[in-house]
Amino acid sequence: MELLGSNEILVTKTVLLELRWILQAVYELPLKAVLKAMLHILGLPNVRIERNENN
């Protein structure tokens, strides 16, 4: 089963900040686990990260 399917997903900076806060504050995961989860999501082939317009 593909969770995100084949559609391209844009992950904004705000989503990343909220994800970190929720995983640490609500689920009480250690920072290492949070970073591992975030890197996994961002490493998926159909996930794109919001970029600054200056870059």
Rank of each mutant, 00 (worst) to 15 (best):
R48A: 02
L4R: 05
T12M: 02
N46Q: 02
L39W: 08
V15Y: 04
N52W: 06
V47M: 00
L10M: 09
L19G: 10
N55K: 02
E50G: 00
E18T: 11
R48Y: 00
V34T: 10
L31D: 12
E53C: 12
N52I: 04
S6G: 12
N54A: 12
K32R: 13
I22A: 08
L19R: 10
N46W: 03
E18N: 09
Q24D: 13
V15K: 04
L23M: 11
S6W: 07
L10T: 13
N54T: 02
N46A: 04
R48H: 04
N54F: 04
V47D: 00
G5I: 07
L4E: 02
G43V: 00
L17H: 11
N7K: 14
L19S: 06
G5K: 00
V11M: 01
E18R: 02
G43M: 03
L10F: 13
A33G: 05
N52S: 13
N54V: 06
V47T: 03
T12P: 07
G5A: 12
L4C: 07
A25V: 14
L42E: 00
T14N: 08
A37P: 07
W21F: 14
V15H: 04
I9M: 03
N54E: 03
L16T: 07
A25F: 10
V34F: 06
L17Y: 13
T12C: 07
E2C: 05
N54W: 02
E50T: 05
L35I: 08
G5R: 07
R51Q: 01
M1L: 15
L29T: 08
L23S: 05
R51E: 00
T12V: 11
L4A: 10
S6N: 10
Y27L: 15
L16E: 05
L17T: 14
R20A: 12
L35T: 11
A33E: 09
E28H: 15
V26R: 10
H40N: 11
A25D: 11
G43R: 02
V47I: 06
L31C: 11
I22V: 15
L42D: 01
Q24E: 13
R20P: 14
E8P: 13
L31T: 11
T14C: 14
